[in-house]
């Protein structure tokens, strides 16, 4: 990889939190419009984060800030793996470290709410990580490579051969974004039973770090989804944005389900969507 390309990849990785933050602004604006409110300005998430950063620091233990930064840090490493066109499995595993930093930080405070949120976040991971892994394996079966470079070299749009696998990624996206019906671990709308779930015990700068990490992860996932139309990045971005808007729509249409329903949905519908796709390709002699 030459010098400029390296620079672009690095810049892109560092820009993921900003892209994610803007998308969160879009989310708040659109959700407000769906609920017939005006909604905050687009840059509101950034104002919020800045304000949080300046608040008087309060922590649950000395470990919490390290883990909060670990969430952001490893999310950035995962983003870097994507922009440098590395192995998708590694992206998944490194994102896993980020998630574990978040959940362990939540467990770190002896609070029932953050504990409950942390446990549900683990369940969320148990729900969507295997689906993502299976989707990546489906990509491997088509392209012969687990690397993002391999997807680019494959040339043809993956969406055309893996349509239902993309649909499975939709479920993953909803869980990742912590949107209804799968916002079980840290919903913004479940104060009575969860307070703020996995986020309850973060405040000030640790909360800001967690927000940044969340944005980074969102942007990374959307970048991965855009790979389903790798030959033309604009179409790819269009696909991931469409799915992002669909997730917002679903969020406003459906009530929250239990974690059992979430697990059952991904482990049945999610798996089935990918397996059926692969079976069809095998039967058709494509792979």
């Amino acid at each position: 990889m030459d010098y400029t390309a390296t620079l672009i990849s690095a810049m892109l990785a560092l820009a993921t939190p900003i892209i994610g933050g803007l998308l969160m602004g879009v989310d708040r604006k659109l959700t407000a419009r769906m609920q017939e409110r005006v909604g905050p300005p687009l840059a509101q998430p950034f104002y919020d984060a800045l304000k949080l950063w300046g608040k008087a620091p309060m922590i649950s233990s000395g470990l919490q800030p390290v883990l909060a930064f670990g969430y952001l840090g490893f999310a950035l490493v995962a983003a870097g793996l994507v922009t440098f066109r590395q192995d998708l499995l590694l992206v998944l595993f490194v994102t896993g470290i980020a998630d574990i930093c978040l959940t362990v930080a939540a467990f770190n405070a002896k609070s029932p709410y953050s504990y409950l949120g942390g446990r549900r976040e683990f369940l969320a991971m148990l729900s969507y990580e295997p689906v993502m892994l299976l989707a990546y394996i489906a990509i491997f079966l088509v392209t012969g490579s687990f690397t993002i470079r391999g997807i680019y070299e494959y040339g043809a749009p993956l969406l055309l051969v893996l349509p239902t696998a993309v649909a499975a990624m939709m479920i993953v996206l909803v869980i990742e974004m912590k949107k209804s019906p799968f916002d079980v671990s840290g919903s913004g709308h479940a104060h009575q039973e969860l307070v703020r779930g996995v986020f309850t015990e973060f405040s000030g700068y640790t909360m800001a770090l967690i927000e940044l990490g969340h944005w980074t992860k969102l942007a990374t996932t959307l970048m991965i989804i855009s790979l389903f139309w790798a030959p033309n990045p604009l179409v790819g971005a269009g696909i991931s944005l469409t799915m992002f808007f669909a997730a917002l729509l679903v969020d406003n249409l459906y009530p929250r389900l239990t974690w059992q329903r979430m697990l059952r949905t991904t482990w049945t519908v999610g798996f089935a969507l990918i397996l059926v796709n692969v079976a069809a390709l095998a039967a058709g002699g494509v792979i």
Binding site: A56, I59, V66, F69, G70, G73, K110, V195, E201, T206
Partner: peptide
């Protein structure tokens, strides 16, 4: 990368620190 994340995290924790507070119990 892992070492860098942990180092920066520890440095940040030292820099910003914070008072250890009780959890929210509703």
């Amino acid at each position: 990368a892992g070492a860098a994340v942990l180092l920066i995290g520890s440095w940040l924790a030292k820099m910003k620190g914070g008072a250890i507070t009780t959890p929210y119990l509703s």
